[in-house]
Structure formats: structure tokens, C-alpha cells
Amino acid sequence: MTTVWAGLATGAIYSLVAIGYNVVLLASGTFNFAHAQLLMIGTFLAYTGAVTLGLPVVPAVLLAAAGVGALALLEERTAIRPLLGRSDAHGALITTVGAATILDGLAAALWGRQPLTVPSGLPDRPLELLGGTVRPVDLVLIGLTLLVGVGLHLWSRHSLIGLASLASAEDRDAASARGINVRLLGVGAFVLAGLIAGAFGLLVGARTYAVFNLGHALALFGFVAIAIGGAGSQLGGLIGGFATGLIYAFAARYVGEAYPQLVVFAVFLLILFLRPRGLFGTALERRV
């Protein structure tokens, strides 16, 4: 059970990345490769807030959320906006990788290459729960991720803006013709994804440390979560993230310490091969 808790806690982080990908994907049709890097910056800002500035938990979380939200806005302006209306589809492929690399580099240059410990403000003593041990911070991380994931899922179906975002994912032109400002919606999605990533910086950092290349692994496992859950499905991404985390934890426990990445990679290849639309996605017929 301890393995399950560990898997769920790691999985929560992957779910967070998948959620961030999906928020942007749904509203603007862009895959933001740099989202995992936003989460990484979130952990550093949480460190700066909580340790360097010595702020209490709530202001530290707000600082990280605001900072990452602003960065996401900046990223949209520089890496996405100039490409809108361009026919070459893989422009964003390059520019968001560029943005991710800049964020990696900035983190390394500003905070150094050594991992930093981010204090969560929660007691460190592990709890006994359902036959396993789990740190309080992990429990909170799992709970809040579930809350945000399910909340976003419900919100996207039961609010006007959520509906508008689903509609513009289905057909941008038709959404514009209903008076939906699709561009603003896209910007809003970037900022929202940034705010969420920043707000979780403290909890994620408390589990993983703040380290400049954290984004790489997170980007990958977040993408595996999307592959499992199906692109554009908030609920799918949430479940996919937890599933990836569990696979990772069980592979580490039962196959060997060095193997979890390889096992996840094998699962990833298998899913792409067998269910390319994800376990929750549906196949779409191509239209000319």
C-alpha cells in the first residue's frame, strides 16, 4: 500500500502536467510543451517565497501562482501569438520547445543546478493510512490534484466559458461566429494553466525538490498521461497521470530501481501502438 501511495503522489504531479496540457489544448488547440517547465518554475518561486523571503505558506503560494501565471502570459505572447494564422502547423512545435529551454536555462542560471528543498509547511511525520505509510504533504497533493482535475472537468461542462472553450476546440471559426473571443480564450487558458502550475509549486517542490531539469521528466510523464487518457479529456488526463505514477512506483518496487522509466516507456509505446487515441479517446474519421 505504501507503494500505491507513492505511485499516487508521483502520479498526481503527472496529472497536474496533463491537466495543464489539456487546459491549453482545449481552449487554443496548441500543445504547450513548456507547461512542465512552468510547474518547475513554480517550485523555485515557492522556494524563493518560503525560504529566501521567509513568507508564510499562503503568500508563498500566491506569489508562485502569480509569477508563473505572468510567465505563461509572456510565453503566449512570444511563442504562440506570432504564429497564429500561419499555415505551417509545426511552428509551435519549435517555439514551445524553445520557451521550455529558456525556462530551464533561466532556472539553472538564477537558482543554480543543485536541487533545493522546498518546505511544505506541513508536518513531516508519515501517517499510517489504509495499510501503508504516506507523508501528509503527499496526501494533500493527491487530494488537491483530484479536486482541481474533477473541478476543471465539471467547470468545462457547466459554465459558459467552459462550454465556449469546448466549442472552440471543436471548431474555432464556428465559435468566433457565435461571438466567442477565441484569442482571449486562448490567452486565458495559458494564464489559468500557469496559475494552477504556480499554485502547486510548493506541494510539488516539497515532493521532488526544486531542480532546473525537473521539467523534462514531468513533460514526458505528463504526455504519457495524455496518451493514456486521450488528448483533450480532463478526466482522462487525471486518471492517466495517476496510472502512470502507479506504473512507475510498482516498476521501481518490483522490477528494479533502475527500470521504472523503461517500463513506462514500454507502456507508452504499447499504448501508442494499440490505442493511439488513448484509452478514453474515440477515433475520428478523417475529413477532406
Binding site: 457547466h158 459554465s159 459558459l160 462550454l163 465556449a164 466549442a167 465559435a175 457565435r178 461571438g179
Partner: peptide, 11 residues
Amino acid sequence: LGGYTIPGRGL
């Protein structure tokens, strides 16, 4: 969604 531009908050 057709009524997206109607003023007023929420559904």
C-alpha cells in the same frame, strides 16, 4: 453558446 454574447454572468 449561441447566446454567448448576451450580457450577464454565467449560464
